[in-house]
């Protein structure tokens, strides 16, 4: 294979990949910072987003519905409007809490 052609096409591919990423980076940052927040106390049993396998504090799954120390990623701004029967405020919270009656 002609190595100089390969070098040119590699640089072109990397350059294209970088410019594509630059266009998307702004959207990604927005998406990351604005679109999601950690919300405690709203996830159903075994549906929390923190999972790290057996023997860890996230241990794959929460064991009760609306568990106060289990969180789920939700669209930003919606957490404290989502009903949570275990939460002292009646809604999801941005920090973990002790569930009512627990």
């Amino acid at each position: 294979m002609n190595k100089s052609l390969t070098t040119a096409s590699l640089a072109l591919a990397l350059g294209t990949a970088l410019s594509l990423a630059a266009v998307n980076a702004h959207a990604d940052d927005m998406a990351k910072s604005a679109a999601k927040e950690k919300c405690f106390g709203i996830s159903m049993k075994a549906k929390n987003d923190c999972k790290a396998g057996a023997g860890t504090t996230c241990a794959g799954t929460s064991h009760a519905d609306y568990q106060g120390n289990a969180w789920k990623n939700v669209p930003a701004g919606t957490c404290e409007k989502t009903a949570s029967p275990t939460s002292p405020t009646g809604f999801g919270q941005l920090k973990e809490f002790n569930a009512k009656g627990a």
């Binding site: 096409s9 590699l10 072109l12 591919a13 990397l14 294209t16 990949a17 970088l18 594509l20 990423a21 998307n24 990604d28």
Partner: peptide, 11 residues
């Protein structure tokens, strides 16, 4: 497209 494959790693 090689660029889109590399683009994944960059993104």
């Amino acid at each position: 497209d090689l660029a889109s494959a590399l683009g994944l790693l960059i993104a």
